[in-house]
């Protein structure tokens, strides 16, 4: 499951970053701002009609991500951990 498919306000954990081959540096960039495996992540808003930008809380910080960026973040439900 990726971050663009999750429910709003539910808590998930980051599993991995699947960056596209055309832009591998995105992985490191997302990790630097806190999207690291095991980190708690919640989508707070999905923008008008769910088209983004997403408002995402990761750890203790909040970021705005475009839908294309959210799609790269693989997550699992926090309950399974």
């Amino acid at each position: 499951m990726h971050l663009d498919q999750v429910d709003v306000d539910a808590t998930y954990r980051v599993c991995a970053i699947d960056a596209p081959k055309s832009a591998p540096q995105i992985k490191g960039q997302l990790e630097d701002i806190g999207f690291l495996p095991g980190e708690q992540v919640t989508v707070l808003r999905k923008g008008l009609l769910g088209k983004g930008p997403y408002m995402v809380r990761v750890g203790a910080s909040t970021f705005a991500l475009r839908k294309s960026e959210a799609r790269m973040i693989a997550v699992e439900s926090a309950l399974h951990v």
Binding site: L30, I33, T62, F63, A64, L65, R66, E69
Partner: peptide
């Protein structure tokens, strides 16, 4: 790709 990823403090 670089465009957003903006922190909302």
């Amino acid at each position: 790709m670089n465009a957003l990823m903006m922190e909302l403090p």
